[in-house]
């Protein structure tokens, strides 16, 4: 009797479980696995304008990809993607940690700063882009002219400063969001560890470098790895600022691929090329990401 009841419950559980999961799993099958399979197939096809359909072509899309990898545009795009990643790791991350420490220690006005740092995540990127675009294009040149008498072009027009400006803009609007995640991670540190270290005479710098940072290591691993995973997707806001009209000098791989995709039906002939490029880049970045993750976990500081 008891066994029958248990079996009945299990069967009921199973039916409920299967019914509830059916739609999300179907969605996963179509929109993740289906899309990836389609992307793989597209890489070996070409768009037949007359038939309005994709037909198998072989490796021609890959040949074009490898030809382009040697060209100046892609070399610039790779360099800029690397610069954007390094800026994220070497500038945004340390700044985020430092300011999170301020919030974590509950120094004066930290509550107000939490709200302020959240604002860039709330305000639409296109709104912030418009505000800063006109500010550096209209306000800054005018004020510099009024103060020094020197006429300068807008920062986004001047190709020599456009890239540094975009990188700065990425840091400026990006590190606020990370503060919330870092301070959340810092809050999980046991207060007694900090207290006992204080009693042993540890100062603020030692507290950050010897206690807080090692205990936050898993959070850093997540940031470094997800940043690496998004290496080829980062557009450094170039599409927001310039749309389709960015200069080659500020191209990233992410911008290059997105701007080719975002041309509506005009993009269709480019789909096989973009898929072949995506597949090639995945073969580069996937092992790198997994390898870096493995090394960071294996050789990173332990909680002990």
């Amino acid at each position: 009797m008891a066994r029958n009841y248990k079996e009945k419950i299990k069967k009921g559980d199973l039916i409920f479980y299967a019914l509830m999961l059916a739609l999300p799993l179907a969605s996963l099958a179509v929109f993740y696995f289906g899309v990836n399979a389609n992307s793989f197939l597209l890489a070996f096809q070409k768009y037949d304008q007359e038939r309005g359909a994709f037909v198998f072509e072989g490796l021609s899309a890959f040949r074009r990809v490898f030809d382009d990898f040697g060209g100046i545009v892609m070399r610039i795009a790779f360099r800029n993607s690397l610069l954007a990643y390094l800026t994220g790791i070497c500038v945004t991350m340390p700044l985020g940690v430092l300011f999170s420490y301020y919030v974590f220690k509950n120094f004066p006005l930290s509550g107000a700063f939490r709200v302020i740092f959240y604002l860039p995540s709330i305000i639409a990127s296109i709104v912030l882009v418009l505000i800063f675009k006109y500010f550096v294009e209209k306000f800054l040149p005018e004020i510099i002219y009024k103060v020094s008498g020197k006429a300068i072009p807008g920062l986004l027009v001047d190709t020599s400063v456009a890239l540094p400006f975009l990188l700065f803009y990425g840091v400026f609007t990006g590190f606020g969001g990370s503060i919330l995640l870092y301070s959340g991670s810092m809050r999980s540190i046991n207060e007694s560890i900090i207290e006992s270290a204080r009693l042993d005479g540890v100062n603020s710098v030692q507290e950050i470098t010897r206690i807080v940072l090692p205990l936050m290591w898993p959070t850093f691993v997540t940031f470094i790895v997800t940043g690496l995973a998004g290496f080829f997707g980062n557009q450094i806001h170039a599409f927001d600022f310039y749309g389709q009209n960015a200069e080659f000098s500020i191209y990233t791989v992410g911008y290059y691929m997105f701007s080719l995709t975002a041309r509506g039906s005009n993009s269709l002939p480019e789909y096989p090329y973009l898929s072949a490029m995506g597949l090639t880049l995945t073969l580069i970045i996937a092992p790198v990401t997994l390898g870096v993750r493995y090394l960071l976990i294996k050789f990173g500081p332990s909680e002990n």
Binding site: F232, T261, L279, I285
Partner: peptide, 10 residues
């Protein structure tokens, strides 16, 4: 964790 690039066209 696994980055897959360029699936937007697909």
């Amino acid at each position: 964790i696994l980055p897959v690039v360029g699936t937007l066209p697909a």
